Simulated assay, not measured.
Amino acid sequence: MKRIFFLFLLICAPMMGQSNALFEKANEAYNDGDYPEAVSRYTEVLKNGEESAELYFNLGNAHYKLNHIAESIYNYEKALLLDPGDKTIQNNLEFANNMVVDDIKAVPKSGLSNFINGIIGVFSFNGWAWIAIIGATIFAILFLLYYFSLGSKWKRLFFTISITAVVIAFISLIFAFHLKNVTENNEFAIVFAEEVAVRNEPNPRGNELFLLHEGTKVQILNTFQDWVQLELENGSTGWMLESAVKFL
């Protein structure tokens, strides 16, 4: 087993070092204003199997500098999936979305729904899972202190904090599974075609409902052969060619 472990390290270490070197070279190219070279280097890192919010964010910035609307939005969205609470990523995504031709107004949700979704969106699935684990650990430690403590004052303190910790852990666990369920049951994509027709059926002879342009984010409801059924934030639905979008 040890031999296998060391063999794994020998194989992976050079790859990780290579990816880090590529990432640094990409950053240097970006700082020098050579954005095509930065895009090329960042993309190489992705091809090596490395993923991080910082990597997607930097790649999105390089595409943004080149006025690549769809590519910049796609990479900012990927970065947000890994770090949903990052304000810088959110701000840059908003700037990129301002370049999108399609002005789609989202269907307004209730204030309570927006408030809850805003809280859940602060952390990723892993973030909420870690909070749940930490909360459960604190509960276990403090409950033991409560159980073995002799003074009534300390017992009340340990009991109160331990119950608070377990409640936080339970709520975090619910949020984590909610995010996991949303991710698994809601698939999104970014339109990469400069302009694409959305039709009422998965057929090139179907009636054209409206046009979409690059950078627009759509929710994928269904797929059929070379077509995808989509829904926009305003509730509009239709079919478009799958080749016109890139899945998140």
Score class of each variant (00 low, 15 high):
residue 4 I to S: 14
residue 5 F to V: 14
residue 7 L to H: 12
residue 14 P to E: 07
residue 16 M to G: 04
residue 19 S to D: 14
residue 21 A to L: 09
residue 21 A to G: 03
residue 21 A to I: 09
residue 22 L to C: 08
residue 32 D to W: 01
residue 33 G to L: 06
residue 36 P to R: 00
residue 36 P to N: 01
residue 38 A to V: 03
residue 39 V to C: 02
residue 42 Y to Q: 04
residue 49 G to H: 05
residue 52 S to D: 07
residue 55 L to P: 12
residue 57 F to Y: 10
residue 59 L to I: 09
residue 60 G to Q: 00
residue 65 K to P: 09
residue 69 I to C: 00
residue 70 A to R: 03
residue 75 N to F: 06
residue 78 K to T: 14
residue 80 L to S: 11
residue 81 L to E: 10
residue 84 P to A: 06
residue 84 P to Q: 07
residue 85 G to Y: 02
residue 85 G to W: 02
residue 95 F to L: 14
residue 95 F to D: 07
residue 98 N to P: 12
residue 100 V to F: 08
residue 101 V to A: 12
residue 101 V to W: 06
residue 105 K to R: 06
residue 106 A to P: 15
residue 106 A to S: 13
residue 108 P to D: 12
residue 113 S to T: 15
residue 115 F to C: 03
residue 116 I to M: 08
residue 117 N to I: 11
residue 121 G to L: 04
residue 122 V to L: 05
residue 123 F to C: 02
residue 123 F to V: 09
residue 126 N to E: 14
residue 129 A to L: 09
residue 133 I to V: 15
residue 137 T to L: 15
residue 139 F to P: 07
residue 140 A to S: 11
residue 140 A to N: 12
residue 148 F to M: 06
residue 157 L to P: 09
residue 157 L to E: 11
residue 158 F to I: 08
residue 160 T to W: 04
residue 163 I to E: 01
residue 167 V to D: 02
residue 171 I to L: 00
residue 172 S to N: 13
residue 180 K to E: 13
residue 181 N to P: 10
residue 186 N to F: 10
residue 190 I to E: 06
residue 191 V to F: 02
residue 192 F to R: 11
residue 192 F to W: 06
residue 200 N to T: 12
residue 202 P to K: 00
residue 204 P to L: 07
residue 210 F to K: 05
residue 213 H to G: 07
residue 218 V to N: 05
residue 223 T to M: 08
residue 223 T to C: 04
residue 226 D to G: 07
residue 226 D to E: 12
residue 236 S to H: 00
residue 238 G to Q: 11
residue 239 W to Y: 11
residue 240 M to L: 15
residue 245 V to W: 03
